[in-house]
């Protein structure tokens, strides 16, 4: 089970170079480029942060510890920004 889910008011779309998040309540848009965009995509598929960190090691060539920290920092920033709940 996913630890985080997209907040209800957030809608998102895939772009050529990342994803764009839109807050349905305010209309504000935020662009995410890679590798953050990949993290967003994996979260919405229901992956846990552990699993995402493991995939990031393979995708972005990060060390496991660095990947895990990167995922947790990113997710925490999104939670504070209201993009995620959980």
């Amino acid at each position: 089970m996913s630890e985080y889910r997209a907040a209800e008011q957030i809608r998102w779309a895939v772009e050529a170079a990342g994803v764009v998040l839109i807050n349905g309540a305010t209309g504000a848009a935020t662009s995410l480029s890679y590798p953050e965009a990949a993290i967003w995509d994996l979260i919405t598929r229901g992956d846990s942060s552990e699993k995402i960190a493991a995939k990031l090691c393979a995708i972005a060539g990060l060390e496991p510890v660095a990947a895990r920290k990167f995922v947790l920092d990113t997710v925490e920033a999104w939670r504070k920004a209201g993009f995620l709940r959980g």
């Binding site: 772009e15 050529a16 170079a17 764009v20 305010t26 209309g27 504000a28």
Partner: peptide, 15 residues
């Protein structure tokens, strides 16, 4: 609708 304007009909619109 300003935030939505950023989208464009194609993925490639952003760039």
């Amino acid at each position: 609708f300003s935030g939505y304007r950023r989208l464009g009909v194609f993925r490639e619109c952003a760039a």
